[in-house]
Simulated assay, not measured.
Amino acid sequence: MSALGEAPAPFGAPEETALPGEAGGFFESGRPRIGGLLHPVAFSDLQEKVIKAAADTIIPPHPKWPTASEIGMVEFVGRYVTPSGYKNKHFPFATEDEFKSGLDKLGQSFVDADVAGRTEAISALEKAEDPLFEQLRALFYYGYYSRPRVTLAINDNLPAGRDFHGPPLPYGYLQTTEPWDEELLAQAEEHGSYLETDEVVRVDLSQLSWAK
């Protein structure tokens, strides 16, 4: 039997996972694997070009900052897209077939377009509430700000970022977050109450005094 973390499963958490509340926290079971997929989803040459062009559209290049398309964004995206045949259960909930279909729809015309044309195409996705827009935006933001080169740029370019050490822990506060108290929640549902907005009234505080 391998130790925790030594033999990562191809999808999801390591094969040997900690019991809830021990070592890995209360929500260890079912967590996404650190670093995404062991084997990233592969994209066609055109799809890779679309990803890079979209990355530079959502995160415009700047001389003092690393260019999004030049810091391994394609591989990062491939590690966080759910492969065909697997249950889509992790953020940003991008499935391989639908994600690739969206990239293909943008296609060569998007790659060949100028900045204004690309911006218009991405804006159209946003206005149409196309899931592809939110997936691309989330993947690009997370991918970009997890890169060591970007961390160094934050240190160099932002006075408030000189002590920035990188993105938060992969799993947040799993080791310290306590599980929900199901019994207490059930009681709250039975006996809890709330006021509707129309029933809320202003409280007169004019007669209150902080003096004893």
Rank of each mutant, 00 (worst) to 15 (best):
T67A: 07
T67Y: 10
A68M: 13
A68L: 07
A68F: 06
A68Q: 01
A68E: 00
S69Q: 00
E70M: 02
E70K: 07
I71C: 01
G72T: 11
G72I: 09
G72Q: 00
M73R: 07
M73G: 01
V74M: 12
V74T: 10
E75W: 11
F76I: 09
F76P: 05
V77G: 03
V77C: 08
V77P: 01
G78R: 06
G78A: 04
R79I: 12
R79A: 13
R79W: 12
R79V: 14
Y80I: 13
V81S: 09
V81G: 08
T82F: 04
P83L: 05
P83A: 07
P83D: 06
P83N: 04
S84P: 00
S84C: 03
G85I: 03
G85S: 08
Y86Q: 15
K87A: 15
N88H: 12
N88C: 15
K89M: 06
H90N: 13
F91T: 12
P92S: 09
F93A: 01
A94F: 08
A94D: 06
A94S: 11
A94E: 02
E96S: 02
E96G: 08
E96V: 01
E96N: 11
D97P: 09
D97S: 14
E98K: 15
K100E: 14
S101T: 13
G102E: 04
G102D: 04
L103Y: 01
L103M: 06
L103F: 04
D104C: 05
K105V: 13
K105I: 09
L106T: 03
L106P: 05
G107P: 01
G107S: 05
G107E: 02
Q108N: 12
S109P: 03
F110S: 00
F110T: 02
V111C: 04
V115N: 12
A116Y: 02
A116L: 11
G117V: 00
G117F: 02
R118N: 12
R118L: 04
R118F: 09
T119E: 09
T119I: 10
E120Y: 10
E120L: 14
A121V: 03
I122P: 06
I122M: 14
A124G: 11
A124P: 06
A124L: 11
A124F: 13
A128G: 04
A128E: 10
E129S: 13
D130H: 06
D130M: 11
P131L: 00
P131R: 07
L132H: 06
F133N: 12
F133G: 12
Q135M: 07
Q135P: 01
L136T: 08
L136K: 00
R137T: 12
A138M: 14
F140S: 02
F140I: 12
Y141T: 15
Y142K: 07
Y142E: 15
G143S: 08
G143T: 05
G143D: 05
Y144H: 07
Y145E: 07
Y145W: 14
